[in-house]
Design a protein around this nucleic acid. Structure first.
Length: 426
RNA sequence: GGAGAGGUGUCCGAGUGGUCGAAGGAGGCGGACUCGAAAUCCGUUGUACAGUUCUGCUGUACCGAGGGUUCGAAUCCCUCCCUCUCCGCCA
């Protein structure tokens, strides 16, 4: 959520930003509700002050006459207060409901545009594979080598689920450990996080827990849902706390399962492992002072590049367009890996993203630190270290060999214990 | 799941319906003493929102949460939540 005063005092910029991000929110309404709320609040506080004052006079042991008058006056004041309290509560409810729809401001350098077509490519790293044989997509490779089973998963759990089998299982654990070792060296605190979170935390991070457009699974009869990412549980870790400034920056790396409904997502780019209901992810999360959040954003991007360069997977970095940022991000970098099985001739597929959400999430979550000028909200950033399912796509498709086997990148061999998968000898 | 105990400020801990934003202690911060430190002494010490003559001041709210009684509630009543201990079940 944005600061209400900021919205009121920067109405034009806020409205321009809503438009640039292609979102629906009414900043004028928020400013109006905010003013109305403040007017009513002042009125109510004045009445309460009078009530307190009146009650205080009783302590002076007044005469019976005065006493009766004070009680009379107290009753009168008392009768005026509850009605205003109700109105204030209603007003604040609509105020916050509307204010929460307003997205974070965008970085002045973020490319302006309605969707990912406007993303700006910053750089491209690595050499695209040039296969001398007919290449296959990860589904074919995975099924041939008995690494993946989509059909059985559909039978047991539904579409967009999968079994990982044999070396793919070791690949998952190996990739996790590979990423964690890098992050531990960078000073990240390693964590395994809950896979379920309260809706209040989910909302604070900027996800919509319920509703038809929600990408999350909510739990029956509870105000909780399955997490779509450890960003939720890492961001909620310090909710409602004032973090000692000397502990900043806090770097956390969380391993969790991620559950996503992906309702309505179909088409060639969501087949196989690309868009699934459940996967495992190692997520980075940074809590820092506002002054250094942009530096940390660059650092997250660099770590993501280090991880994928280390896996020798070709990728490009894009600066995400305003229309594709979502609500909480101030700026977002995506890493897109080359996926030879994507489309007719291969294509880029999003494999990580790194977002600077500034104080947008911290405000609703109540994460602050003490500064010279009072308590301020921290800045929060998140980035994917490695999303296992998509990483497996990139590995299988880029490292496939003419004989149907798949080579394992050098840096990963110590973590998985083998140098290649297959070929099947039959 | 069953039985019992309890939830007060950064922590421990007191609190008769008005003098309680809350005793006392610890810790933190500032200062005195000291060559320096410890000890001792003095002062200070939360959060949020609003207003403001704005590095301060004023008001309101906050003693687990939500209701109620009352001119007035940390204190009385009701409901709920959570934590702890013991038992049961269990990876």
């Amino acid at each position: 959520m944005l600061d209400l005063k900021f919205i009121r005092d920067n109405l034009d910029a806020v409205k321009a930003n809503i438009a640039a991000r292609n979102m629906q929110a009414d900043a004028d309404l928020v400013a109006r509700l905010y003013d109305e709320r403040n007017t009513l609040l002042r009125e109510l506080e004045q009445l309460r002050a009078q009530r307190n004052d009146n009650a205080k006079k009783m302590k002076a042991k007044p005469s019976d006459d005065e006493r009766a008058g004070l009680i009379e006056e107290g009753k009168r004041l008392k009768s005026e207060i509850p009605e205003r309290e109700r109105r204030l509560e209603e007003l604040e409810q609509s105020l916050y409901a509307e204010a929460e729809k307003i997205p974070n401001m965008a970085h002045p350098d973020a490319p302006v545009g309605d969707d990912d077509g406007a993303n700006r490519e910053i750089k491209q790293v690595g050499v695209l594979p040039d296969f001398t044989f007919p290449s296959q997509d990860h589904i074919a490779i995975g099924e041939n080598l008995e690494l993946l089973d989509f059909e059985r998963a559909t039978k047991v759990s539904g579409t967009k689920f999968y079994y990982l089998k044999n070396q793919a299982v070791l690949l998952e654990f190996g990739l996790i450990r590979y990423a964690l070792d890098i992050l531990a060296r960078k000073g990240f605190r390693l964590m395994i996080t809950p896979d379920i979170a309260r809706e209040s935390v989910v909302g604070g991070i900027g996800f919509n827990p319920r509703g038809p457009e929600s990408n999350l699974y909510t739990l029956e009869d509870e105000d909780t849902c399955l997490v779509g990412t450890a960003e939720i549980t890492l961001g909620g870790y310090y909710a409602d706390e004032i973090v000692p400034v000397e502990e900043l920056p806090i770097l956390m790396a969380g391993v969790s399962h991620c559950f996503r409904r992906e309702a309505g997502a179909a088409g060639q780019f969501s087949k196989g492992l690309y868009r699934v209901h459940q996967f495992t992810k190692v997520e980075m999360f940074v809590i820092c002072t506002p002054e250094v959040s942009e530096q940390h954003h660059e650092q997250l991007r660099e770590i993501e590049e280090e991880i994928f360069s280390g896996l020798e997977i070709p990728y490009r970095v894009v600066d995400t367009a305003t229309g594709d940022l979502g609500a909480p991000a101030y700026r977002k970098y995506d890493l897109e890996a080359w996926m030879p099985g994507r489309g007719e001739h291969g294509g880029w597929g999003e494999i990580t993203s790194a977002s600077n959400c500034t104080d947008y999430q911290a405000r609703r979550l109540g994460v602050r630190y003490k500064s010279e000028s009072g308590n301020r909200h921290v800045h929060m950033l998140n980035g994917t270290a490695i999303a296992i399912s998509r990483a497996i796509i990139a590995l299988l498709e880029n490292y496939q060999q003419a004989d149907g086997s798949v080579r394992i990148p050098r840096s990963l061999v110590p973590y998985v214990g083998f140098e290649q998968i297959g070929p099947r000898n039959e």
